[in-house]
Simulated scan of single mutants.
Amino acid sequence: MSKISRRAFIGVSAAAAAVTVGQMGKSKAVAQQGPAIRVAQTDNVVNLYSSRHYDTDQTLYDSFTAATGVKVNLIEAEADPLIERIKSEGANSPADVLMTVDIGRLWRAEAEGLFQPISSNALNQAIPANLRHPEGLWYGFSKRARVIMYNKSKVNPAQLSTYEALVEPQWQGQILTRSSTNIYSISLVASMLAAHGPQETEAWVRGLVANFARPPEGNDTAQIQACAAGVGSLALANTYYLIRLAKSDTPEDRAVAEQVNIFFPNQRDRGTHVNISGAGVLKTAPNKEAAIRFLEHLATPESQAIFAQGNNEYPVVEGVTLDPILASYGSFKEDPINAAEIGRNSAEALRIMDRAGWK
């Protein structure tokens, strides 16, 4: 996941205040700026712009085509360039659906006025209310838990409890995490804002920064590797990164996974922070009905199993079997906050992180 520009993110927040929300086979390309050619409406195609970079997602598209006869044309790139492309294309955009990871990206597209509300009983019944926009602008289709990972030789899990407790003196020089510009970091702090408000959250961020093992660098895999190597004893990371290492063909990766375990924080109060990968129908979608059918397909038990097995994520639909290695780490209570609130808090979270020195 690429870094996000502080100026761009906070600028979107300001613009959001003025936005009133509520009113090809596989063809893969890199998102580029340039004029778009308006695609005629048809029931036989859906044009998907996606920043999910998982090859297993192709199974989702193939299964949709097999079930409906509707072809999926895929444009794949990072989220921010895709959002800029849709804005540049304007009313002539061929895009029907934007799919991306993390509520912060969905919120940015929402704040730019790119989505339209849709009404779908199938989606509303399948997807919990806290994992979808209240007005149907976007829906979550998979979950990722941001947990505390610990070095098993250095930490007794009985020492762990909550995100809030990571600021305690015993963890000085022990915390590993990504940069403040990473959307996963921003969303975690945004969830803390929802729980505690700005003053307490800023005090918490300052305490966390004081306990960093090193200046933030690298992705979640790098945090887990550093934790296993003893650079620090605790890492903030999404669960599926550890499962990837555990399932790797490389002995060194599996050795890293053996040295690290997962702790689900805040089980005695609000629960562990979860984020989503999700999608919405674009305001200018030329194939709206096909786009809605596509989203409904993503919420079927069959598709949810592909999400769960393909990228070691948690499904949003109850009763879907988890990847067995992920399941071996146990179940957990998740924070029930609506993802939309996390998105709205994102820009303020980044400002707090800036002030507190989270680089």
Results as ranks from 00 to 15, higher is better:
Ala66Thr: 09
Ser277Tyr: 13
Val19Gly: 11
Leu106Pro: 01
Thr20Arg: 09
Ile352Phe: 07
Ile4Cys: 09
Val147Arg: 04
Val256Cys: 11
Pro94Tyr: 02
Phe332Arg: 00
Gly271Leu: 09
Ala8Tyr: 11
Gly173Pro: 12
Lys283Met: 07
Gln199Thr: 11
Gly136Cys: 05
Thr272Trp: 05
Arg146Glu: 12
Ile75Val: 15
Val317Tyr: 01
Ala257Cys: 01
Ala66Ser: 09
Gly218Phe: 05
Ala17Asp: 12
Ile292Ser: 01
Ala222Asn: 13
Ala308His: 00
Pro215Tyr: 00
Pro35Leu: 15
Tyr314His: 04
Lys143Phe: 10
Gln223Phe: 01
Pro265Met: 01
Ala31Gly: 09
Leu74Tyr: 13
Leu322Gln: 05
Pro265Ser: 02
Ala109His: 04
Leu82Cys: 10
Asn130Tyr: 03
Gln159Phe: 05
Thr65Asp: 08
Ala308Tyr: 02
Gly207Glu: 06
Ala15Cys: 14
Lys359Val: 08
Ala95Asn: 06
Ser119Thr: 13
Ile262Phe: 06
Pro81Cys: 11
Ala210Asn: 10
Leu166Arg: 08
Ala95Asp: 04
Ala77His: 10
Thr221Arg: 12
Gly22Asn: 12
Gly90Glu: 14
Leu242Met: 04
Ser27Pro: 02
Leu298Trp: 06
Asn124Gln: 13
Glu258Gln: 10
Ser142Met: 09
His297Asp: 11
Lys3Tyr: 01
Ala165Val: 01
Pro128Ala: 00
Asn312Gly: 14
Pro134Thr: 03
Met353Cys: 12
Glu217Arg: 15
Gly69Arg: 04
Ala16Gln: 09
Thr20Glu: 05
Leu131Gln: 13
Ile86Asp: 00
Gly278Tyr: 00
Ala40Met: 11
Arg132Ser: 09
Ile86Arg: 00
Trp138Cys: 10
Ser346Leu: 10
Tyr329Gln: 02
Ser180Ala: 15
Phe332Cys: 06
Thr300Ile: 12
Leu208Asp: 01
Val167Thr: 14
Glu76Leu: 15
Ala349His: 06
Val316His: 00
Ser63Thr: 10
Thr68Val: 04
Val205Phe: 00
Asn211His: 10
Val30Gly: 15
Pro198Lys: 04
Lys26Leu: 12
Ser51Met: 13
Ala66Leu: 08
Val97Phe: 06
Glu89His: 10
Gln58Pro: 14
Gly104Phe: 13
